[in-house]
């Protein structure tokens, strides 16, 4: 028993054993509904996904690494992976920067800027399905954006049929998530003690010096959490892309989500399970690396 107690939180060390047992029973009671569901709907079937990635589409015959080979050699998989990595790599830093700028702007503008918080949060609430029509009207060849460009005497752009589609998707993501991230930043910025800025300004520091010496280190924990939530939201742009451009959009915005979607509808279970296993492995590896080099993320 000594050995067991050793691992327990210090707060519980001095308690009598029965109370510890009571605590454990309570934890089990409160946690188990969620845990059972997570195991049943996510973890157990994931084991099956990994098993199936080594079998044929029916899940019966063992085929070794054939599925992985098929996935790796698949051209669509390569394009989709490259696009997805590129998308995440560009949109997250852009979003973090934009929303931090918004947050600083709101704070600098004083108490009168309060209503703007809600205004910028609005896009998060607007359902994708409601946006589809507007999106089409804006970015079609004969759409409103091109009408505007025409007035400004700029050549019209075929937004959905060229590489511009990728940037339209980035813009959509920024528009939708800036407000949410801005609220996160504001909360993070509020945590930095005002006294630090006052001391720095007495010492004659200017705005930029204060930002790099006080604000930037102060918002590191916020950065970790905001980046994580932004990543989760970045996967959701598939909805916009899918509803506007269908299952096979312009190549520049063909994401891994499209690929999974199409394989699933074609019931290519062999390939899809192998690809899912690969994606999870890569995500876990990346998470592990980030965890090792960036201690702030431990607080998440």
């Amino acid at each position: 028993m000594r050995h067991h107690i050793h691992h327990v939180h210090p707060r519980y060390k001095k308690r009598p054993w029965s109370q510890n047992q009571q605590t454990f029973a309570a934890a089990l009671l409160l946690l188990s509904p969620s845990l059972v569901g997570v195991i049943l709907f996510y973890l157990l079937p994931f084991v099956e996904v990994v098993r199936r990635s080594f079998t044929d589409a029916m899940g019966r015959r063992f085929v070794g690494l054939a599925n992985y080979q098929a996935v790796w050699q698949n051209n669509a998989f390569r394009i989709a992976t490259a696009n997805t990595v590129k998308f995440v790599g560009i949109c997250i830093p852009l979003l973090l920067g934009t929303s931090l700028a918004l947050a600083l702007l709101i704070r600098a503008a004083g108490p009168k800027s309060r209503p703007f918080r809600s205004v910028f949060l609005l896009p998060m609430v607007i359902p994708v399905a409601s946006m589809v029509l507007l999106w089409k009207v804006l970015f079609a060849k004969a759409g409103l954006v091109n009408t505007l460009l025409d007035i400004a005497n700029i050549e019209p752009v075929d937004f959905m049929g060229t590489n511009a589609a990728f940037w339209v998707l980035i813009a959509t993501y920024l528009w939708k998530n800036s407000g949410y991230d801005m609220i996160l930043w504001i909360a993070g910025l509020d945590r930095i003690p005002v006294a630090q800025y006052e001391a720095a300004s007495v010492d004659g520091a200017n705005g930029w010096q204060m930002f790099w010496a006080i604000t930037w280190p102060g918002i590191q924990p916020t950065l970790a959490l905001t980046a994580l939530l932004s990543l989760i939201n970045s996967f959701k742009v598939f909805r916009e892309a899918y509803l506007v451009a269908g299952a096979y959009p312009h190549q520049s915005m063909y994401l891994l989500q499209h690929l999974f979607n199409n394989w699933f509808l074609n019931l290519e279970l062999g390939r899809i399970t192998a690809a899912a296993t690969l994606v999870v492995l890569v995500l876990l590896a990346v998470a592990g690396i980030i965890l090792m080099i960036w201690r702030h993320i431990k607080n998440i």
Binding site: L35, V38, L40, F41, Y42, L43, L44, P45, F46, E48, V49, L228, L231, I232, F235, K236, F238, L256, Q257, F260, N261, F264, L269, I272, T273, A276, V279, V280, L283, L284, A287, I300
Partner: peptide, 23 residues
Amino acid sequence: LYMVYLVLMVLPFQITMVPNYLV
């Protein structure tokens, strides 16, 4: 265990739909 929850949270729907579908 919490880490497991976090990983599940990050996975996009297109990944979890496969195990979901099986169940």
